[in-house]
Design a protein around this nucleic acid. Structure first.
Length: 404
RNA sequence: GAGGGUGUAGCUCAGCUGGUAGAGCGGGGGACUGUGGAUCCCCAUGUCGCGGGUUCGAGUCCCGUCACCCUCCCCA
């Protein structure tokens, strides 16, 4: 019996042109992070499920219906990570990084898992690069983190808008929440059924609703920014000032709230108008480290969705600097040696295993996008040289293999 | 989780009211073993996503299922 397998729904292979784009995106981002002096950490893909439940929030969709949860042999509940921040905070506390120095800048890269309906740019296994800054309360850290996000879209030449907001802290959010719920009750007949439910459980998210009548109803709603306490207001206005100083364009979106419970003060999204969704998003989470057993430690970060970004980039189309060695006639031992010599010089060389006349061989090299053809015929062998042809310019010269 | 659409060669797709599978691109070979992006000729593409049903007969109709795409929800 022959059975053909398929990858499970929402899980996919990344190869060929997609992989080229993927690598282009990740290496570009990594290079930006390197210049900002972020330090890499590699985090486990599996954590205890309640790590996410307590940080992201019990009532969020991510926790309620999108986590891959399973039990280990002792019946402990484990989860495939749906995002990176919770694990990063856990690692920060568990490894006592707070004891090493006053602040830390780290980044992670890897797969995340959410059990949701696949769509363009949405997978059950997707990949993120995330950055976190631990131990800095001041808004210039916020500005620099948002600058990194901006640099990413700029460098990759992606059209995107940066939206920012502040959702306050322990001190001011309760009062705002109360005012908001009061307002929402007064317009409840205009809200969609989902929002009626949200109104009591997580009222801030009503502001985010895409239903037209809700958007309309929410226009006159009290604004978080009007309810911020002294410190939060100061933080937010300094952030704006610093972003201007850095030349980072942004728009204030008082309805931006983000879905995860751990955020405080600054939240932001980098939204692609072409995709209609966020490609990078993050914010500040000043209480999470403490909630996870560490010392009180303000922190913030963001995550960038690699697949979504890859949908928006064009990779530069260049010939790979590959030396394609074409043996022609009875010259295999010599061609083997020539290929090896080129590799010893640190260049990329491939000995052609293909059959056919020279025309076909060159045609093949051309199709593969190789930059150089190294023609090794009997004439060349006799003289101890090769004919090196630049496939881009068409120029051809005779050189000794060790001079390539 | 809800709604809708699609699934035929490696890719893009055609295939009428049911009668036993096609085109382009790509691939391989040749014209043409010593110079690529071109032209011409030839060749192979296949459990028609999978399973079941209706029928003398199903790529076509019906049901189920899986995957993908779109919208909603949510999110990177």
């Amino acid at each position: 019996m022959r059975e053909e397998f398929q990858a499970p729904r929402g899980f996919h292979d990344i190869l060929g042109e997609d992989l080229r784009k993927f690598r282009y995106v990740t290496s570009t981002i990594r290079d930006i992070l390197r210049r900002h002096n972020f330090e890499e950490i590699i985090l486990p893909v599996v954590e205890y499920a309640d790590l996410f439940e307590r940080s992201i929030g019990e009532t969020t969709d991510i926790v309620q219906k999108e986590m891959f949860v399973f039990e280990d042999r002792k019946g402990r509940r484990l989860a495939l990570r749906p995002e990176g921040t919770a694990g990063a905070v856990r690692a920060y506390v568990q490894n006592r990084l707070f004891a090493q120095r006053t602040y830390h800048k780290v980044f992670y890269e890897g797969p995340m898992f959410r059990h949701e309906r696949p769509q363009a740019g949405r997978y059950r296994q997707f990949h993120q690069i995330g950055v976190e800054v631990f131990g800095v309360a001041e808004p210039h850290a916020d500005a620099e983190v948002i600058k990194v996000a901006h640099e990413i879209v700029e460098t990759l030449k992606i059209k995107a808008d940066i939206e920012i907001n502040s959702i306050g802290c322990k001190v001011c959010r309760p009062a705002y929440r109360e005012a908001l719920v009061g307002y929402l009750n007064s317009v409840s007949e205009k809200l969609c059924s989902v929002c009626l439910d949200r109104k009591d459980r997580n009222p801030l998210r009503v502001l985010d609703c895409k239903v037209e009548t809700c958007k309309e109803a929410v226009k006159e709603a009290p604004r978080v920014t009007d309810y911020l306490c002294e410190e939060c207001r100061d933080h937010y206005s300094k952030l704006s000032e610093y972003l201007k100083a850095l030349g980072v364009p942004y728009v204030e979106n008082p309805h931006l709230v983000r879905g995860l419970d751990y955020y405080t003060r600054t939240v932001f999204e980098v939204v692609s108008p072409d995709l209609g969704s966020a490609i990078i998003a993050g914010g500040r989470y000043d209480y999470l480290v403490e909630e996870f057993g560490g010392p009180p430690t303000p922190a913030l970060g963001f995550a960038a969705g690699i697949e979504r970004i890859a949908l928006l980039v064009d990779t530069p189309k260049e010939r790979e600097p590959v030396y394609f060695v074409i043996p022609f006639g009875d010259v295999i031992p010599y061609a083997l040696k020539v290929t090896d010599t080129i590799r010893e010089k640190g260049k990329v060389a491939e000995l052609s295993y293909r059959k056919g006349n020279l025309r076909k061989q060159l045609d093949f090299a051309n199709k593969m996008g190789y930059r150089y053809a190294v023609i090794v015929g009997e004439d060349e062998m006799r003289e101890g040289v090769v004919s090196l042809k630049d496939m881009e310019t068409g120029e051809q010269v005779r050189v000794r293999p060790e001079d390539i």
